[in-house]
């Protein structure tokens, strides 16, 4: 008997014996569109999904991080290995992912602070790509509180603009608000398995 692979490929080839006409993909949808002030839109759309957004200038970044963590009462906070030292504000017990933190340590923490790769203004989506100041995926998953820094230069308007900036060979996580479900009566409620609180510091001049 032929193996599964050649059987399935053989079935496909005979199913396509009619060789359907080649397809041209119409690309006249909008790769980008005028969306006005992208930072304002990003802030509004992220907040729409019940994430708190703090728009600040670069010189207020550190003090905002300190203030947010204090307001949250977060004492043991996770960070990726390359978390900028300036972001590691005093008064907090920083747990950097080196040596690799255990699942228990991640789960038992008060929160996580990371940067991000790209933010899509139109949809209010933050994308992490395990690049600078982000770390591996588990870091932003187990802590119940995620404080995420978004730089103005990382904000794009549309989904196509975002994908053009991203490398699919890196592990990517698109985040739009805190975890949520629509599984009860098709109505959205926030807070299931992922972080239940997402806070964003939007640096408007970086």
């Amino acid at each position: 008997m032929a193996d599964a692979r050649s059987t399935v490929l053989g079935r496909i080839r005979s199913a396509l014996a009619d060789r359907p006409a080649p397809v041209t993909i119409p690309r006249d949808y909008h790769a980008s569109r005028p969306l006005g002030d992208l930072l304002a839109l990003a802030a509004e759309r992220i907040a729409d999904y019940r994430a708190e957004v703090h728009a600040v200038t670069a010189d207020a970044l550190t003090s905002t991080i300190a203030a947010r963590l204090a307001a949250r009462g977060a004492r043991r906070v996770i960070g990726p290995v390359d978390l900028p030292p300036a972001w590691q504000v005093p008064g907090v017990d920083w747990l950097l992912d080196s040596p690799t933190l255990s699942i228990g340590e991640l789960d038992g923490s008060d929160g996580v602070l990371t940067g991000s790769a790209v933010t899509i203004a139109e949809t209010g989506t933050i994308v992490l790509d395990a690049g600078f100041a982000q770390g591996r995926r588990a870091l932003t998953l187990l802590p119940d509180y995620h404080l995420c820094v978004v730089l103005a230069s990382q904000v794009v308007g549309t989904v196509p603009e975002a994908l053009a900036r991203l490398d699919p060979l890196r592990p990517l996580t698109f985040i739009s608000g805190p975890s949520a479900t629509s599984d009860i009566e098709l109505d959205r409620v926030e807070g299931v398995h992922g972080p239940r609180t997402l806070e964003v510091v939007l640096v408007t001049d970086a």
């Binding site: 949808y29 999904y49 899509i120 591996r136 989904v159 592990p171 996580t173 698109f174 739009s176 098709l186």
Partner: peptide, 30 residues
């Protein structure tokens, strides 16, 4: 870029669903 716009708006009627994960094979250490 087409489907990440079509799918969330058609399914849960959101601009974007809360999480989308993309991975390629195995990423060492992650």
């Amino acid at each position: 870029e087409v489907f990440l716009q079509l799918l969330p708006r058609s399914s849960t009627a959101e601009r974007m669903n809360p999480y989308t994960s993309v991975w390629t094979g195995v990423t060492p250490g992650d």
